[in-house]
Simulated assay, not measured.
Amino acid sequence: MEDIKNLILDKAKERMERFGFKKTTMDEISKDCKISKKTIYEHFNDKEDMFSCLLLRECHKTIELLFAQMGAVSDPLERLIQLTRKAIGHFNQDHFVTRILKDDELFLAFINRKYHEMIDEEIISMIAGIIREGKQQGRFREVDERIVAYAGFKLFQAFSYARTGPLRQEQNEQHYTEVLIDFIVNALVKK
């Protein structure tokens, strides 16, 4: 059952990447999957539901990928630094999820607030866990890890896919990443 659902989502992703959401039809996805439209509708209410499921799946894959890239780093500060660098690098590239997140109209139209909050909450909880660990080790100041994780996540968004203005021409992406890391380190590390 999950295999068919993932096949449908894979083919929908391929088609949407190539032609966009509006030009992708359920008939085309059905042909690409070599299954009936009835089978597609057994898994998804409509194209919007399928797109929401696809976006959620891809967001979770991205989260898993980014956290897996940190490997077995035991130092919480180093994990936060690596996570920040890798995430900004990832979201400044042209990935399916990044294109969707940058397309405010499409993203907001199909990922309802419940799903959006669910994804944000998952990420914030993971970051808060790293901060909590740093506090327990005595490396980080006594801070409210949920609030700091939330603020850090919002800053990350501002430095990557949710940027609302251009960066100064004389500075590159790496410079802005290092400024954000410096800010995070100075906000958390005990002196």
Rank of each mutant, 00 (worst) to 15 (best):
M50E: 05
F51R: 11
S52F: 03
S52Y: 09
C53R: 01
C53F: 04
C53G: 04
L54N: 07
L55Y: 11
E58I: 13
H60N: 01
I63M: 12
E64P: 13
A68F: 06
Q69W: 07
M70T: 07
M70E: 01
G71V: 07
A72L: 09
A72T: 12
D75G: 01
D75Q: 01
P76E: 04
P76W: 09
L77Q: 00
L77C: 01
E78R: 00
I81N: 01
L83W: 11
L83G: 11
K86A: 09
I88W: 02
G89D: 10
H90D: 03
H90P: 08
F91L: 10
N92T: 01
D94F: 13
H95W: 12
F96E: 08
V97Q: 03
T98R: 01
T98Y: 07
T98F: 06
R99T: 11
I100V: 15
K102T: 14
D103H: 09
E105M: 10
E105W: 14
E105C: 08
F107W: 08
A109M: 11
I111P: 01
I111C: 10
N112E: 11
K114V: 10
K114H: 14
Y115D: 15
Y115H: 14
M118Q: 15
I119E: 05
D120R: 15
D120I: 09
I124Q: 03
I124K: 06
M126L: 15
I127E: 03
A128V: 06
A128E: 04
G129Q: 06
I130Y: 03
E133C: 00
K135C: 05
Q136V: 04
Q136G: 08
Q137N: 11
G138D: 08
G138S: 01
R139E: 03
R139G: 05
R141C: 05
E142P: 08
E142G: 12
D144S: 07
D144E: 06
R146Q: 00
I147E: 00
I147N: 00
V148L: 07
V148D: 04
V148A: 06
